[in-house]
Design a protein around this nucleic acid. Structure first.
Lengths: 216, 216
DNA sequence: CACGTAGTTGAGCAGTCGCTCAAAAACTTG
DNA sequence: CAAGTTTTTGAGCGACTGCTCAACTACGTG
């Protein structure tokens, strides 16, 4: 790679990192070409030279940050084998990312996307990376659970991802409340996990009751 | 009430309604003194005359809108007697409010509150009105469920409220996905409701398994 | 080394923001 | 009706926004 191409890539990366740091540190409202450029230590005009527009930069930053995170956690997601573990994983990741704030990028962009259609597509794409991973886990987990045949992994994956982002945003206005919410979900996860480990007789009873409910 | 006082109250209300309409229609990013005043049909300087600042207006609009909604749905919340009904209620309310958009106000403010500390307090207060109602329902519902002794109504209420707002925001970037998420949650609610109606023997087995899980 | 291009810069334009203010208008009170 | 108060208005200030552009530097290629 030539020095020129290397410099180009370096500048782009500086801007992407600057965008993520600004987004998580100052919020979407204070994320502008000038603030991002300042965080990146470069001139603001480079935002437009390299990315064309602020929205485009944020879109790429969204993909950049999300792909990084999903890659980082993919193995751990792969080893999850119950609903309880999934919810416990959510709590762990949330705390690991607290100071890095990489997950909060999605929350900020989701907030901003409500008004800027250009951001909406990128945010949906970023979120769908997580949804896809969660969906894989749910398909596997639900197949092994007595509750499995009555739940829709596709919809649940979206619900889990959206809820997680909602709690992330909630943390911004009530940190204690968000902590208790995560605690409660983890606890609920343990309950669900326990159901999977019922003895065969109780399992049959549960399945039977659920089928009756499903029929109306 | 004198004509002067009546006019004062009318103008304030126009501004509050204008704020809510702008918030739900244009989003927090395009909600300014000028846009709100235009929606209200009055001069922008009145925002500062009557409320002192834009943030203060939005804070009062948040309380105004949320109190209205909570009052409206309180009876229906009071008649909920299972987790399934609670989740079904969430879906119903979501659809009833779709065009009115009064619930989306909270989502927009939660998004904005990530950066403006002044808004954070008001948003947390608005959200806590919902949390309190959900908590009452959960206390009642969980007391009658075999899962009850293993779940924390306080934390769960916060998780439910925050998740609901998250799904509301998710709808802004992926309407179909949000719909499937709500469907899946409703379905899951039906499963939880069915567990409450297990026969006494299965109930004892479930409780026994949960207690063992709770001990470690 | 010389020429062309890619990368970078600071200045600047048009627009919006929150907010202020003096003056006009509407109402209350004597 | 006149004087005083409250409400409303349009203009305007300084700060910020996305974005453009001519000038400048640094590199790639003959």
């Amino acid at each position: 790679m030539s020095p020129q191409a290397r410099a180009r890539a370096a500048t782009r990366e500086k801007l992407l990192d600057g965008a993520i740091r600004t987004l998580t540190g100052q919020g979407i409202a204070k994320t502008s070409a000038r603030t991002v450029a300042a965080a990146a230590g470069v001139n603001q005009a480079l935002v437009f030279y390299h990315f064309g527009s602020v929205d485009e930069l944020l879109s790429e930053a969204c993909r950049y940050a999300t792909e990084q995170r999903v890659d980082r956690y993919r193995e751990r997601l792969g080893s999850i084998s119950s609903l309880g573990e999934l919810l416990a994983f959510g709590r762990e990741m949330h705390e690991e990312e607290r100071e890095a704030g990489h997950v909060a990028v999605l929350a900020q962009l989701l907030a901003g996307a409500q008004t800027q259609p250009r951001l909406a597509a990128a945010t949906a794409a970023g979120l769908s990376l997580w949804v896809a991973e969660v969906e894989k886990v749910l398909v596997r987990v639900l197949a092994a659970s007595p509750l499995g045949e009555f739940a829709d992994p596709v919809g649940l994956a979206r619900a889990v991802a959206a809820s997680f982002v909602g709690i992330e945003l909630y943390e911004g206005v009530d940190r204690d409340g968000a902590g208790r919410a995560l605690d409660a979900l983890e606890q609920l996860g343990a309950v669900a996990a326990a159901l999977d480990e019922l003895g065969p007789v109780a399992q049959r009873a549960v399945r039977h009751r659920l089928r009756r409910a499903a029929r109306g």
